[in-house]
Amino acid sequence: MEFAKQFAPHLPLLRRYARALTGSQQSGDAYIRASLEALVADPSQVTMDLGARVALYKFFHTIWNSTGATIIDMSADLSDSATARLQSLAPLQRQAFLLTSLEGFKRSEAATILGQTEKELDKLIDLAQREIEDELRTKVLIIEDEAIIAADLEHIVKEMGHDVTGNAVTRDEAVKMAHANPPGLVLCDIQLADDSSGIDAAHEILSAFDVPIIFITAFPERLLTGERPEPTFLISKPFQDNTVKAAIAQALFFHPSKESVAA
């Protein structure tokens, strides 16, 4: 079937989304099966002019809403704190947060999927991020040699409720600060004041601490070569405040250690 060819590339990502949404592989996969069975039974239910991926996710939510989100595995292991945090969010907030942060949909696309206006979606995302920020307050080390940019980052970090442990302008200073006051998050430029490398500083910090690092740089091509493991979180200069805030929330939420350093 033609629709099967169009949807097939997006099914692995939808499966990831369903598992994150429900809190377990078993219940997420149950929703995928239910959605695919309904789709095969009546392909006309899908609005293909939305584009294959948006149409697929929107149809998935039709099934989700029609069941009242009842296919939930109550034995799901919520010891993973990111999973537990997701499940603590109200359902619509959780969906809006995951669609934009995990799945990378534009807000207009996420609004279409959820049947919300963009204004309503923005409120849902803001509520989700506020709850996450309240729970994940931490200490932040800034590694940035441009004073104005460092000041902007410090303002953003403090506005989110986090503490700034310091602003390092060289690799050695960054490593020293990290050991003196271990951070829960690092914001890192890659080209520093004495021509030392923020990448080297990050690697040395990571050798001692399990901490998420967000690279903020005017030279993203230096990190996106495909020749080595690349950063999960990368922001290009010049940046928007909201971009930095979203990256911080996502980095703290999804970091594998699932732990933040108390502020």
Rank of each mutant, 00 (worst) to 15 (best):
Y57E: 05
D73I: 03
T67A: 07
T70C: 09
G51I: 02
F59I: 04
G68H: 03
S79K: 12
T47R: 15
G68T: 04
V46H: 01
A55N: 03
M74V: 13
L50V: 04
G51H: 04
F60A: 01
M74E: 12
D49E: 13
Q45L: 13
V54F: 01
K58T: 12
N65L: 15
S75Y: 13
L50Q: 07
T62C: 13
I72G: 04
W64Y: 12
G68F: 02
N65F: 09
V46P: 00
A55R: 00
T67Y: 05
S66I: 04
A76V: 13
Q45H: 09
I72Q: 08
R53E: 12
T70H: 12
L50W: 07
T67I: 08
A76F: 08
I71E: 14
W64C: 02
S79D: 12
S75P: 09
T70E: 15
T67E: 10
G68M: 05
A55Q: 01
I72Y: 04
G68N: 03
S66H: 10
A69E: 11
A55V: 05
V54Q: 00
W64Q: 02
A52N: 09
I63M: 04
G68K: 00
F59A: 00
F59L: 05
I72D: 04
S79E: 13
L56M: 07
D73N: 08
N65Y: 10
A52Y: 05
N65D: 14
T70F: 09
Q45V: 12
I71M: 14
Q45N: 10
S75Q: 15
W64P: 01
M74G: 13
Q45P: 02
M48C: 11
D49H: 14
D49L: 11
K58P: 03
L78D: 06
T70R: 15
V46E: 03
I63T: 06
I72M: 11
F59G: 00
T62M: 12
T70W: 08
W64N: 00
L56K: 01
V54R: 00
S75H: 13
Y57M: 02
A52D: 11
D49V: 11
K58M: 10
R53I: 07
R53F: 07
V54I: 09
T67P: 01
I63N: 00
L78Y: 08
A52C: 11
D73W: 03
V46C: 06
T47L: 12
T47Q: 14
H61S: 09
D73H: 07
I63F: 01
D73K: 03
N65R: 15
A52K: 08
T62H: 14
L50P: 02
S75W: 10
G68E: 05
M74Q: 15
A76I: 07
I71V: 12
A52R: 05
H61E: 15
T70G: 05
A52V: 08
T62K: 14
S66L: 07
K58G: 01
A52L: 04
